[in-house]
Design a binder for these strands. Structure first.
Lengths: 217, 217
DNA sequence: TAATATATTTAGACTCATCTAATTTAAAAA
DNA sequence: TTTTTAAATTAGATGAGTCTAAATATATTA
């Protein structure tokens, strides 16, 4: 139906729209796609003709409704396959991204719905990101950054805002896992370092950078 | 590593070598790949330079050892994913080919080995075709055609030589499933029609064409 | 507002995998 | 062995997705 390249552009535009606002710049897209700007211009022209995006010369690009549907489908595929890799094949949450980048392009509505059922209709992927349902509806999770909590407050670790392997590794090493209850014991005024109490009374001290990459609710 | 197209050519050459002998003709390849002959000539030149095939102008092609390894890897992927689709997702054996054609190109040795382990290291796919192991060794199954059996002989249904959806459908409808014990009750001399006794004393009569597409051992 | 810096697009070229039309090579038949 | 037929290759073109270098818009700052 659509080429892998088109799908990857759609996904990238979708994500940039989520984080950086409605209109996406050529250069931003070039950066995340790992290509040079003129390639993006060319691609956007082609995708504009196919009504996947609405593109105005030198004004940036937005997804059309059609493009948005495709993008959400890719996100759904990606996240469900990640669940499969972790839950069924025993991969770590830090190892599944690249494989899911391939699997997300496998076509077939029935396939992904069967996979969804097989996995028990999970609501989130191994990083806590929400999985769109078969109709493309994305469950809104109302999580906040750990760094927004005050001393004494308590919450459940539900997701990460930094998906890098190195950060996920760090969390593994620090023994902080998705679903853990975290209580803010103290916040160091000088450098915004957070001391957390985890299950079993274990205490961990994390930097502000880390507190800024942890989502809780 | 290799493009999907290259992988599909390698698989096609591999299968043609299995059935039609060592050297594969441009036209045969064009036919199974669904492209025109000049496209094949071009592709074989490129693949020859990459040492995936040994190609001699107007003399046909053979796989190199390197090409053969890649081809067997694809076959391994294809068949393991078929097992997954049938055993885990509940697909029918007649529905999985096209999806597996996509999944077979997913890269990652670790992935396919983990999938293999998850499935319990199956020896055959849902059609009874042998699955190469992690080292690329294909278990030799010594099966024969049902049509080679004589009256009174008995054997287990272990595979099909016709993989078409329509044939698989026919077998489903006739209630003949992989693993069934089949006994040749009688063979009609006039038109080589086979009357078979299945488990539970059920009798089924099948044409010579069907007897020629069923493998037993 | 004018000058400068940055972002974007045009122009022209490359690779991969394909096509059609024309030509050449190999095989089969006379 | 010559002729005819079939198979394979060359030649030239196309579309997708990319590139570099040059030109043009847009934004920023003086």
């Amino acid at each position: 139906m659509h080429s892998f390249t088109e799908e990857n552009y759609l996904k990238a535009i979708y994500k940039l729209q989520e984080t950086n606002g409605e209109v996406v710049a050529t250069s931003a897209l070039a950066q995340v796609m790992g290509v040079h700007a003129p390639s993006v211009t060319d691609m956007l022209k082609r995708m504009g003709q196919k009504k996947l995006v609405s593109y105005q010369k030198s004004k940036g690009v937005k997804l059309t409704e059609k493009g948005r549907q495709v993008a959400i489908g890719i996100v759904r595929n990606h996240r469900l396959w990640e669940v499969f890799l972790v839950e069924k094949l025993g991969y770590g949450w830090d190892e599944v991204h690249d494989i899911a980048e391939q699997l997300e392009h496998i076509q077939g509505e029935e396939l992904i719905n069967k996979l969804d059922a097989y996995l028990g209709f999970p609501k989130t992927d191994p990083h806590g990101d929400p999985i769109p349902d078969a109709k493309g509806v994305l469950p809104k999770l109302k999580s906040v950054l750990l760094s927004s909590l005050k001393e004494g407050e308590e919450a459940t670790f539900t997701g990460v805002s930094d998906h890098s392997t190195s950060f996920l590794h760090y969390l593994d090493k620090a023994g902080i896992a998705l679903g853990d209850m975290l209580k803010v014991k103290s916040i160091e005024q000088y450098d915004q370092t957070y001391t957390l109490a985890l299950k079993g009374k274990r205490e961990v001290t994390v930097s502000h950078k880390v507190a800024n990459s942890i989502l809780v609710s």
